[in-house]
Design a protein around this nucleic acid. Structure first.
Length: 211
DNA sequence: TCCCCGATTAACT
DNA sequence: GTTAATCGGGGAG
């Protein structure tokens, strides 16, 4: 078993924490006894002064965990359907977090497949909603402590090779699309989209409004 | 209380 | 590559 990342690891701006999380392993122990594990290959940073952040307009019942101490899990539901996992960064009172977007399954693939309808292995955790579902994570785990909790945590993994980390624009946003705050392990086949690729040009970002 | 929109996904063509 | 599905949350009334 690897070693769990300490509180201090998380106490830095999300912009630093997001790339630092790549290569480490998220582990989830469910009530049903199953344990699943995957290597983080894609993250996004959300800073306090960031119009794309849920916390940009101040604390609410949903985003409260983001304002708390580092090293906790913030879980929100996207499109009313898909749970998405975030790691709270920085000092208490500073609302910043790292969205966990994609991972490569390492262990417990059977349990993940049972929850996800047996897609190809590399797709089990490919995308924030898919990953959450494969890991049996929903709003119940909002606020879970990754450092001392026994339901979900992060262990030290093998570090990325030099030059493997690629930054690019974040996915699915209507604002702040110019900030290259998405971080990927470029060689992974489990990315939600190709590393560094132009995900949403400004033109299409504007056209989203006319849906 | 009501309404609109989204840090997405799966199923299409 | 494109699009419909789907409902929780924030903000307005």
């Amino acid at each position: 078993m690897g070693r769990r990342l300490p509180r201090g690891f998380y106490r830095r701006p999300s912009l630093q924490l997001a790339p630092a999380l790549l290569g480490h392993e998220l582990v989830r122990a469910s009530d049903d006894g199953s344990i699943v594990r995957a290597r983080i290959v894609e993250t996004e940073a959300y800073e306090p002064d960031d119009p794309a952040s849920h916390a940009f307009r101040g604390p609410t019942p949903r985003n409260g965990v983001m304002f708390g101490p580092a090293g906790h899990l913030y879980v929100y539901v996207a499109y009313g359907v898909h749970p998405c996992m975030n790691v709270v960064a920085d000092a208490e009172g500073i609302a910043s977090a790292v969205l966990l977007r994609a991972a490569e399954p390492i262990a417990g693939l059977e349990a993940m497949a049972a929850r996800r309808g047996s897609p190809p292995d590399r797709d089990l955790c490919r995308g924030p909603g898919r990953w959450s579902r494969a890991f049996d994570v929903d709003r119940v785990l909002d606020g879970a402590d990754l450092v001392s909790g026994d339901r979900v945590w992060i262990e030290r993994g093998s570090p990325p090779e030099r030059g493997a980390i690629v930054a690019g624009p974040r996915i699915g946003l209507a604002v702040a699309t110019e900030r290259p705050w998405r971080f990927c392990l470029a060689g992974s086949r489990s990315l939600s989209r190709p590393a560094g690729g132009v995900s949403r040009p400004p033109a299409s970002a504007a056209s989203r409004r006319s849906r």
